[in-house]
């Protein structure tokens, strides 16, 4: 199981298969024209396009979170909790005003207790979320593609070792081991950089066997194709064949997998932060906001609702886009 999905535990054996099933058979011949066809198909899929735009906006927000919050005028680190600048009810510590203190200055209101601006906190949360999701996806890809390629191409003992290792990893109670590992590392150092690295490691490392298996399967069948045989008989080296013949043919599924893995790791980071083993303040994180909001959700439901919505929209956008990409790349697709 990988860490993904809303309940980290919900890992997707099922999802995995759902993905595999659409990936049947490599599209060997197509070459460039396949990409052209795919792009044409994708352009016709309005939902995927809208999702693509949302993803682009999300990335812009994450990259320029500092600039944007400056323009907006509120840092999430600023606290509006003591007189005379307090935005909180002094008796209850809850935001003054309706809907969690939404106002023309604080567009999405402020947090209970500390009175921090929620919009700018969400923007920085997007940054944390995307950094972790993209780097851990990169780690999964690096490990999964290279090992999958080696296993599928060379077969023999390399395949045995790699496949067995991946099987073992897939049978790990990953979530428990991840929480344990992060907890233990926190005894040793509290460095923020290390925290980021450990989270990226547990998400990326325990998730790589999924991509590894897919790549291996693809490579196994591609290496038997005529055009590979042809290259081989012409004296091409293994490296050349892998680089020029195999990799271009597995890029499609890898791309689809990447788009669908990023949201899973976003949920993974949020889940770890929710459990208190992810990111800590002052680093903003959506999961951490949800965890905190759980203390006040009966009184200030907006505080729960907003980070939840942020996660939902982002993850949904990636999922729809990935879905659209898969359909677009699938020769059998009717779209």
């Amino acid at each position: 199981m990988s860490l993904p999905k809303g309940e980290l535990e919900v890992v997707g054996e099922s999802e995995q298969v759902a993905l595999d099933s659409s990936e049947q058979g490599p599209r060997s011949i197509a070459g460039r024209s396949l990409w052209a066809i795919a792009w044409r198909r994708l352009r016709r899929n309005k939902a995927a396009l809208v999702s693509g735009v949302i993803i682009i906006i999300l990335v812009i927000v994450a990259v320029f979170a500092g600039v944007l919050t400056n323009l907006y005028g509120h840092s999430y680190l600023t606290q509006h909790n003591t007189a005379p600048n307090s935005l909180l009810d002094p008796a209850t510590n809850m935001p003054l005003g309706a809907f969690g203190g939404i106002s023309s200055t604080h567009w999405l209101g402020v947090t209970p207790v500390l009175g921090q601006d929620i919009l700018s906190m969400l923007m920085f949360g997007a940054r944390s979320s995307l950094i972790i999701a993209s780097l851990s996806t990169a780690l999964s890809l690096l490990l999964g593609v290279s090992l999958g390629l080696i296993a599928g191409y060379f077969r023999g003992w390399a395949d045995t070792v790699i496949s067995r290792t991946m099987d073992v990893l897939l049978s790990f109670p990953t979530l428990l081991l991840s929480i344990s590992l992060i907890t233990v590392v926190s005894f040793i150092t509290t460095s923020l950089l290390v925290r980021f690295c450990v989270i990226i490691f547990v998400l990326g490392f325990f998730g790589f066997p999924y991509i590894g298996r897919i790549v291996r399967g693809q490579v196994l069948s591609i290496r038997e194709k005529e055009f590979v045989d042809a290259a081989r008989s012409l004296g091409a080296s293994n490296g050349w064949i892998m680089a020029k013949e195999i990799i271009p043919n597995v890029i499609g599924p890898i791309l689809v997998y990447t788009t669908l893995t990023i949201p899973n790791y976003m949920l993974g980071e949020a889940g770890l932060s929710y459990l208190g083993v992810g990111l800590n303040p002052p680093t903003a994180s959506w999961g951490q906001m949800l965890s905190d909001a759980g203390n006040y959700f009966q009184i200030d439901p907006m505080y729960l609702f907003l980070p939840g919505l942020a996660i939902f929209i982002s993850v949904m956008a990636f999922n729809i886009f990935g879905d659209g990409l898969r359909d677009a790349l699938d020769p059998k697709s009717t779209r």
Partner: peptide
């Protein structure tokens, strides 16, 4: 299908408190 994509995108630590609420 859109509904199910939406459902996969909702973490339990968000839907759970809402159900409780």
């Amino acid at each position: 299908m859109t509904g199910s994509l939406a459902a996969v995108s909702l973490p339990i630590f968000f839907t759970g408190p809402i159900l409780l609420l």
